[in-house]
Design a protein around this nucleic acid. Sequence first.
DNA 1: GAGCACGTACTCGGATAGGTGTTGTCCGAGTGATGCCGG
DNA 2: CCGGCATCACTCGGACAACACCTATCCGAGTACGTGCTC
Lengths: 180, 180
Amino acid sequence: MMAHLTVSVEYGIHCLLWLASSAETALSSRDLAELQVISPSFLAKIFPKLEKAGIVEASEGVRGGYRLALPLEDISVLQIVDAIEGDKPLFGCQEIRHRCATFGDAPPTWATSGVCAIHAVMLKAEKAMRDELAAHSLADLATTFAGKAPTEFITQVQDWMKERVSARKPGRRTKLEAPS
Amino acid sequence: MMAHLTVSVEYGIHCLLWLASSAETALSSRDLAELQVISPSFLAKIFPKLEKAGIVEASEGVRGGYRLALPLEDISVLQIVDAIEGDKPLFGCQEIRHRCATFGDAPPTWATSGVCAIHAVMLKAEKAMRDELAAHSLADLATTFAGKAPTEFITQVQDWMKERVSARKPGRRTKLEAPS
DNA sequence: GAGCACGTACTCGGATAGGTGTTGTCCGAGTGATGCCGG
DNA sequence: CCGGCATCACTCGGACAACACCTATCCGAGTACGTGCTC
């Protein structure tokens, strides 16, 4: 079911919530994907958008990954949506009013001046939606999440992450493969 | 540019405004399409939806067409959108919270109970948008339109329509083709 | 002149097709961390 | 002992494919209406 706000947004917000619960260590996009049983390749296309928007910052190399670039209160849901969706308009006005069979070659000026009345209503609806998205921050979502999930679950996931990070052993190990 | 509210909605509202200015005579979907330089075939797929929603009523046969089934004040923009788009949700929650690598076979109950916090924000945003759409009726749009367009334009289009309706001559006229 | 048949234009519905956007996969380039090897 | 090099994992970015939805076209079935023909 393809909707206006796509699963990319859903993936992004969920990942940002996990980043919020792991302030000190950076989390790689792959680990975040495998934690949530999501396509790692697809998630790897979402994070650069969040980085360009200044929401997360990346660290490269082994042990690299992402961490939040702003405090939780300063990241609104609207920022995330715009970063991922690219400020997609709710309604793409085709300016039908310019085209009428009784118009000759060019439409009269009264038909082209100002904003289409229909478009104006849609713009107000879009603004109402965006205002509501801007009214909620990642901090709100994090507190709601913390209120539902037991604290042991959070530490459990953090341990899972640390285990994966420590399991990464870069450097050449051509001779040390397959122990026992 | 494919947006959440598609051109079908735009076509539909424009046509309803034309129907509003022609209360006594029914207008065919083809004439409405050619008046606005729009695909008649495509517009013919939109009107049945408006009819099922009780916004317009159809009359068949020659001289047939559509007319509004409700007073202008009782037709909100939201009704039109829902009739054409089919109550498409703004956000299709995939319930990512159910899938976590640390969950074993089944997710715990605290992860599945209630509404996803992210989904809740999206639902509030969607409600804000729908409330704004419900706050505007076809009557509002018609008055705005009447304030911009000169009255002579309205009568001009009505004459254009009547000319097309009277040009329809059913019955067999195999011998009376091509006068002069 | 009254009734019937026909043809026209309409609505309705399905089948079809192209375009666009979303979702997902794959691969190569560049970079940082770590361990090994040579000096 | 120490510095350079190889290697791995990660990020970044593009190319690519599968899929869904929107837009649009075409065609056939059923229906009302007016005309012309028949009786």
